[in-house]
Design a protein around this nucleic acid. Sequence first.
DNA 1: AGAGTGAACTTACTCCCAGTAAGTTACTCG
DNA 2: CGAGTAACTTACTGGGAGTAAGTTCACTCT
Lengths: 212, 212
Amino acid sequence: MTSTTPAADSAVPVKRRRDRAAREREMLDAAERIFGERGYQGTSMDEIAAAVGVSKPLVYQYYGSKDGLFLACLSRLRAQLLDAVSDAVLGASDPEDAMYSGFVAWFTFLDEHPRAWSVIVDEGMLSAGPAAQAADEVRADFVELIATMVRLNLPADRAIDEEQIQIVAQSISGATERLAIWRTQNGGSPTPEKLATTLQELLWRGLDALRG
Amino acid sequence: MTSTTPAADSAVPVKRRRDRAAREREMLDAAERIFGERGYQGTSMDEIAAAVGVSKPLVYQYYGSKDGLFLACLSRLRAQLLDAVSDAVLGASDPEDAMYSGFVAWFTFLDEHPRAWSVIVDEGMLSAGPAAQAADEVRADFVELIATMVRLNLPADRAIDEEQIQIVAQSISGATERLAIWRTQNGGSPTPEKLATTLQELLWRGLDALRG
DNA sequence: AGAGTGAACTTACTCCCAGTAAGTTACTCG
DNA sequence: CGAGTAACTTACTGGGAGTAAGTTCACTCT
């Protein structure tokens, strides 16, 4: 009864050891959840390890550093976000609708994945070290999507000023990120549709102007 | 000769004790410089204290925490930046020029104060705690300046959708911040004038559209 | 001048957390 | 079964944020 026989545990055959890929996934899931709840600074590696039921050095063996683990979370979440927006854009009927749908998809996704959004906001934590560069590359995919959309909207017969396109794409990326932050502080108040409509109105005619 | 007579020091009467206001200024200056060079994470409170020639607890007595000290730097730098942009806007001849001049002033200031800019970028480090809220209030001044400009450009005889104005102001603030970050990574490549011109073209007609 | 008072300042810690060295346990394949 | 390797742990170091408790200076007020 009081003995600590290992056999007693066999009723629940907890797999102590798992292969690397599975553990990495467990760690990533736990990290995503905890980073999302407590933020980068507020999360300790011990905490994540404990949540997985594993010791800290194992986490270091698989992800190298706290930044590395955080970056892995960030990449995965950004990829999901990019997918959501891409799908919306590709499913649209015309360029104007593509832009609007993309904005709606962006704000809606962030609404529906608040913890994901917290992680993305904390991206700024990686302002130093090699992780910072990697984080920028992750964001660059997004800017490139926007740039592509902008290019499609411009006439094919004109020489396109690629630098201007980059400026516009970076601007839109920055605007949507700030709007998302503002919105969460504001109690989620303007709806995704209202935000998308306003952005649409603000930008559409300006994109026209860039043609000449 | 080899004696450590205190009298020998009297040739350079180093004021060991200074009054609080003076010390706070010294600390703020040192913190601004070091935070600007090494970033928030890379800076230790001991380092700042040593730069001032003082012990760490004194810094804590005056600024409360690392976040508090960083926030003090941030506020001062943001205020300078706001002044620079305000001056440019107020000195303009018409609304269109005000907008353009404001953008140029923004990018030029950041060019000329790279350490200040580093600190502002690191603002994201304060994503948790009471300092985060304070940091947002500091930024809000900027958004309000933009909102005022937008209002001035709208016709006085129409009911103004205040929510739309906030959206636009937040967008512009986000766009200019991201452009500034991108620009430093890009080797400072598009000139302030080119950035301002492109933003001007992109936004001007859109602001018109918001009237109806 | 000398005692009293408060502000400026220091020494010497605690605690927490990222990261690591070195070893141990369990699974697999001959 | 034994050898090899991948999964995993215990037990530590180092460094930096924050603090408790005391010390020294400068300035009043008799």
